[in-house]
Each structure stands twice: as structure tokens, then as C-alpha cells.
């Protein structure tokens, strides 16, 4: 109980809201953040796919160092990197242990390390790219590469509604807590409390379903009067919206540098 209480005090709803927005809008001053979303997409198109098909360790290491450089350039919060590393190590570790049960030996380690390396490159590439784009840029970029207007609208709407929804959910959750009765004993490993709180977390969605439904009705009526559906169906609207996107010198510089680097890595890798 003590643990839950401390956690709930630390994790105030206000706190979460602030952290979320800072995550989203925090890194707008880096070099990468100033690039055009299309540049970042193309770059990611390469580094998100190609590593899967490469088994040459030197090339992979070369790419990995490049990813470390770009990731540090994008000033990603250390927490995200930590979560990523733990996830990768965990997965590799389980595979390693499990494979020994099936007659594996020391030779399993190398392929697993390479697999982990590939996954790291791909994950770091996505972190570099997507942490360098604030939501507006990402949604503009997605719109530009042909995703329907509903997607970019939804991203904006998500940011608009999240604080209200979170707050409402929190209030309902509190109503459950204050009027209900938490189990007297926590049970082994807090299992009673865990079940109690999980149940509340699920039940709180019943009220939220109904109230969100009411919201959705007004919102969609307003969207109708604000011409959203007109906008979704008229490509010239998209053009006006994306008029500010332009590829500049820094975009080309970045891409050309990446290409040269990769060519070097490949030639080195194939000649060793």
C-alpha cells in the first residue's frame, strides 16, 4: 500500500501531462530537428530496413557507431535509451538461456549478439528520426508522403484531448477509490491490491466510454461545420497546409554525408 501511495503521489496527473508535452516538444533545437520530415523519412527508410539483410559484422558495427552519433545529436532523453537497452538485452538474454536448454552452446552467443546489434541499429535509427520530429512535423510529414488527412488530424486531436481525457479518467478512478474499499490486507506480493486496482482501472472505462461518446458527437459536428471533411477530400488544402515544407541545403548535406559514410563502411567491411 505504501508503495502504491508513494507512486500515486509522484505520478500526479499534472506531472504526467507536463512530461508528455516536454517529451513531444522538448528537442526542437537540434540540427536533426531542423531537417525536413521527408529527409528524415528517406534516411529512416534505409537504416530501418537494410540492417536486417546484412550479416557482415564490420558493416553493422560501422552503422551502429553512426547511429550512436546521430542519436546523441538528437538529444534523446537518457530514459528512452535505457528502456531500449534493457529491452534488447532482456530479449537476447532469454533467447540465450532458452537455447542452452535445447542443446545450444557458446556458439549461440555470436549470432545473438549480431541480432541484438541489428535490432539496436534499427531502434536507434527510429529514435533518431522520430524524436527529432515534434508531433506537428511528424503529422505534416506523414500527410506529405500520402497518408490520409484523418491520420494527421488524429495526431493533433490526440494532443488536444489527452489532458482532458487523462484528467477525467483520473477523477473517475478517484471516485472509485474514495467510495470503494481497498482490501484490508495486501496479500502475498500485493496480489489483493493489484487485483483491486486493476479492477478499478478497467471499470473506470465504463463511465468514460459514455462521456467520451458525448464529446465525440459535438466534436464531429464541429468538424463538419469547420470544413474538415471538405479539407480531407480536397488535395489543394493539403498543399496549402504543407506549403512551409522545403528541402534546404542542410537536408542535402545530411543525406550526402550519410551516403558517403555508408559507402565507406561497406567498402571497408567487404575488404577486411
Amino acid at each position: 500500500m505504501e508503495y502504491t501511495r508513494k507512486l500515486s503521489e509522484k505520478l500526479s496527473v499534472e506531472q504526467v501531462k507536463i512530461e508528455l508535452l516536454n517529451t513531444a516538444y522538448g528537442n526542437s533545437n537540434t540540427f536533426l530537428a531542423k531537417l525536413d520530415p521527408r529527409t528524415l523519412f528517406v534516411w529512416y527508410l534505409f537504416f530501418g530496413i537494410v540492417p536486417w539483410f546484412i550479416h557482415n559484422q564490420v558493416i553493422l558495427l560501422g552503422m551502429f557507431f553512426f547511429m550512436i552519433a546521430t542519436t546523441s545529436m538528437s538529444k534523446v532523453s537518457p530514459l528512452i535509451i535505457l528502456i531500449l537497452s534493457l529491452g534488447l538485452l532482456g530479449q537476447g538474454g532469454y533467447l540465450l538461456i532458452a537455447s542452452w536448454f535445447f542443446g545450444g552452446d557458446i556458439t549461440v552467443i555470436l549470432p545473438l549478439l549480431i541480432l541484438t546489434l541489428k535490432l539496436s541499429i534499427i531502434s536507434l535509427a527510429s529514435i533518431t528520426v522520430f524524436c527529432s520530429m515534434d508531433p506537428e512535423k511528424l503529422s505534416d510529414g506523414l500527410l506529405k508522403i500520402g497518408l490520409p488527412g484523418q491520420v494527421s488530424f488524429s495526431i493533433a486531436y490526440g494532443y488536444r484531448m489527452l489532458p482532458s481525457l487523462l484528467e477525467e479518467y483520473h477523477h473517475i478512478f478517484l471516485s472509485f477509490r474514495l467510495r470503494g474499499k481497498a482490501p484490508e490486507k495486501n496479500g502475498l506480493l500485493y496480489w489483493r491490491s493489484i487485483i483491486y486496482f486493476s479492477k478499478i482501472a478497467v471499470l473506470s472505462f465504463y463511465p468514460l466510454l459514455l462521456s467520451t461518446t458525448k464529446r465525440a458527437r459535438t466534436t464531429v459536428e464541429a468538424l463538419e461545420t469547420k470544413g474538415s471533411f471538405y479539407g480531407f477530400n480536397h488535395p489543394e488544402v493539403k498543399k496549402i497546409k504543407l506549403a512551409h515544407l522545403s528541402l534546404r541545403t542542410r537536408d542535402y548535406t545530411f543525406l550526402i554525408f550519410s551516403i558517403i559514410y555508408i559507402l565507406c563502411v561497406f567498402s571497408v567491411g567487404n575488404n577486411i
Binding site: 549461440v108 549470432p111 545473438l112
Partner: peptide, 16 residues
């Protein structure tokens, strides 16, 4: 896809 010659690594395929 990610592991080269998966079948050559003993136990890995099963454990996955």
C-alpha cells in the same frame, strides 16, 4: 531474417 543461417546455430530456432 535477422540471424544468418539460423539452423546452424544449435538450439536457437527451438528456443525462439
Amino acid at each position: 531474417i535477422g540471424v544468418e543461417e539460423l539452423e546452424a546455430v544449435p538450439g536457437l530456432a527451438e528456443s525462439v
